[in-house]
Amino acid sequence: MTERKSKFTLANSLTVLLAMLLGQWMLAWLWVPVDEAQGDVYRVIYLHVPAAFASFLSAGVLLIGSLLALRSKDEHWLNLSRAAAEVGLLFTLLTLATGSIWGKPTWGVWWTWDARLTTSFLLALMYGGWILLFGAIPQGPSRTRSCSILGVMIAADVPIIYKSVTWWRTLHQPQTILRTGGSTMDSDMLCVLLSGIAIMALVTVNMILVRRETLRLEQELEEKSLGGAS
């Protein structure tokens, strides 16, 4: 009974949020002005930056699940961690792909190993590694501990990615939003970008929660079907 109710709420909220996301994309295409330097292609930013933020936020959720699992040794936190790792991988890959496609006409190259791109690539590898690690270790305290430690390491990469353009010389542009001296974007562009980040953040949390719930239900299903097997 309660499963039905929570599925109703989370699925509905996800639908609403995805509709809002489409609305923000329409603003990005039809309402904000073109960029003086890059023309229309810069509009990728309204997807690329929110996706990057989503990958960071997923790492934050992964960190929470990992720390709670390490402290309580309760393996049920792995459901939250695994959901966060999957969603995090999705958004990291999307960030890398959109960034690369944007880079070709603007930088002239699909890729370069500067600090921003390298640390982001590492994030994707580690998210994938988390999922593989989870599958490799049999259920038990060892899996809980190993996956949680990796989860903390993944979260540690995020501030490095964020500050990479400040700490090192990179091809990637420096920070546009959070910087001393105020943002370097026109205000209507900044508005749509910030709203995109906010909506994508909600989409991320929503998807993680739906996935976590499904994982929990799958466990319940497995326990029941094993218990009932004759």
Partner: peptide
Amino acid sequence: TLMVKHSEEYKKPSTDGGTMNKELLEKS
């Protein structure tokens, strides 16, 4: 290999033609 490096500035086209913030580009 030749790569173009941009500053972090995004602005709508200005009427007085090409007002890229050179300082930002230099800093980066």
